[in-house]
Write a protein that binds this DNA or RNA. Structure first.
Length: 433
RNA sequence: GCCGGGAUGGGGUAGCUUGGUUAUCCUAGGGGGCUGUGGAUCCCUUGACUCGGGUUCAAAUCUCGGUCCCGGCCCCA
């Protein structure tokens, strides 16, 4: 190992260094084209949220580590970026945004008129092995509806998620809705003591039916009852599948399906076998997946929960979800959805060097009128500037030459069609607009 | 954390099995010609073997390790 380079060494190196620094594992740079695309779709999501009267919030990118441990348990420490800051505080980059949103609600919004309809967009961080659709820095779009535990609340949130996916233009996807209590209720009424419930649920979640069967046999559950439980675990379909179960959770889902139908949300399935490991989930659970994505195909996950009392607030029911922005963009790309960048509206081309100041005045005038405009600053010759205008996808070339200026005019060339004409300077803005 | 496949100019690639001249081609970037007009064409030019060790007279090529990417497992709050 060579000695640490001094500042001077680094300065010398920086002149032309062989050392290349790359993005840290699992992170990405976004170049202008990609960024334009991302911003566009971010705003599609924002607009849908606003139409549903959800309002945008933002919380810090890092929080006290304890916040996430409270929500998800100490094991989460293995999977997040957590560290001590220079003041000795335990800090973590946020791995999700529901806990921060509820913290914000408890701290600062608990007296706001209910319901609260909040949404947010931002990056989260998880220390996991990256693969397709899974990054260490990733972007989530999320929403929380804090108010009441009822079917209208849940329907509002599910309708929002469904509208967002639709608005993005994704074609192949499935939204499944389940209720955390259906299986639980069934299993306990079959005679499983409640302290054994988590163990059984875990086996079912991992589809280890043989293990589950021996477990149930040990508790004197009949083979028929076990078979019935396994069947329900696997059942997904339209709302008619709810007829297979007669508990109150099924009745709730039926009511929810009715509200969704009234709202025109028709692209959902009922999944009777939903299981969640964490116990702050109180009712419905839903998720969306895009089959084109392979192993990391879940693009949206949500449900109703009660977290606020964990963070020192009153007990409030909420329903929320998060969309995996990177994944859903990836799915759209795989479906062949193209995004066309806009390019600059006007590219100002001085014909000769002696008109550059006049060209600068013109580009400046266009900008002050709110027209995106650019000008040759490489001191290129005219032909090269035209070539450049074409390369940067300019809509119009504004050609500034001595002939034009003598008539108080410029030549405007439509770079798409090649048509061009000379027009007076005072008509330029209205023509470009 | 585990299993497997990869990494060659800014982007896309040939070469690797069988080590051997100046590392192939396309594209992109910069400059120039066609002498006030882009997408065409021609000329010049910039620019790469992921990093480190080993084997060898000689390594992009063989070998070991690191890093990063990709597919899958685990996890998925």
């Amino acid at each position: 190992m060579p000695p640490c380079p001094t500042a001077t060494d680094l300065l010398l190196l920086s002149y032309h260094s062989d050392i290349m620094i790359q993005c840290p594992r699992g992170t990405r740079d976004f170049l202008p084209d990609e960024m334009e695309r991302r911003r566009y779709y971010e705003n599609v999501l924002r607009n849908v949220a606003k139409i549903f009267n959800f309002r945008e919030t933002a919380t810090p990118i890092f929080e006290e580590t304890e916040l996430f441990v409270m929500r998800s348990g100490p094991n989460i420490l293995n999977e997040i970026y957590a560290f001590k800051d220079k003041g000795g505080r335990d800090i973590a980059l946020r791995p999700e945004m529901t806990a921060p949103a509820i913290r914000m609600f408890v701290n600062e919004m608990s007296n706001e008129p209910r319901p609260l309809k909040l949404f947010y967009f931002g990056q989260c961080f998880r220390y996991e092995r990256p693969q397709s659709g899974r990054y260490r820095e990733f972007f989530q779009f999320g929403a929380e509806l804090i108010g009441n535990a009822n079917a209208e609340t849940d329907a509002e949130v599910i309708a929002l998620a469904a509208s967002m996916i639709k608005a993005l233009g994704l074609k192949e996807y499935k939204i499944r809705i389940g209720h955390i209590g259906i299986l639980r209720n069934m299993i306990t009424s079959a005679g499983v003591p409640s302290d054994k419930l988590p163990e059984v649920l875990q086996k079912l979640d991992k589809k280890m039916y043989d293990d589950a069967r021996t477990l149930l046999e040990r508790m004197n559950i009949s083979g028929d009852a076990a078979d019935n439980i396994f069947k329900i675990t696997e059942t997904v379909g339209g709302k008619e599948v709810l007829d297979l179960v007669s508990n109150e959770e099924a009745a709730y889902l039926r009511e929810l399906a009715g509200v969704l139908e009234a709202m025109g949300v028709d692209d959902i399935e009922i999944d009777l076998g939903v299981v969640r490991g964490l116990d702050y989930y109180t009712g419905i659970v839903f998720e969306a997946e895009a089959p084109s994505l392979g192993a990391e195909k879940q693009i949206c996950g949500g449900g109703s929960y009660s977290l606020s009392e964990l963070f020192g607030g009153e007990k409030v029911f909420s329903t929320g979800f998060a969309i995996g922005f990177d994944r859903i963009l990836l799915a759209m790309e795989k479906e062949g959805q193209k995004f066309e960048g806009r390019g600059v509206d006007a590219y100002v081309v001085p014909v000769t060097d002696d008109v550059r100041l006049d060209a600068s005045k013109i580009v400046s005038m266009l900008r002050s009128e709110g027209i995106s405009a650019d000008i040759d600053i490489m001191r290129r010759k005219m032909a090269k500037s035209m070539k450049h205008a074409s390369a940067v996808n300019a809509k119009y070339a504004v050609i500034v030459g001595r002939n034009e200026l003598n008539e108080n005019s410029v030549t405007v060339r439509d770079m798409g069609t090649g048509d061009q004409k000379m027009i007076k300077l005072n008509e330029l803005v209205s023509l470009l607009r």
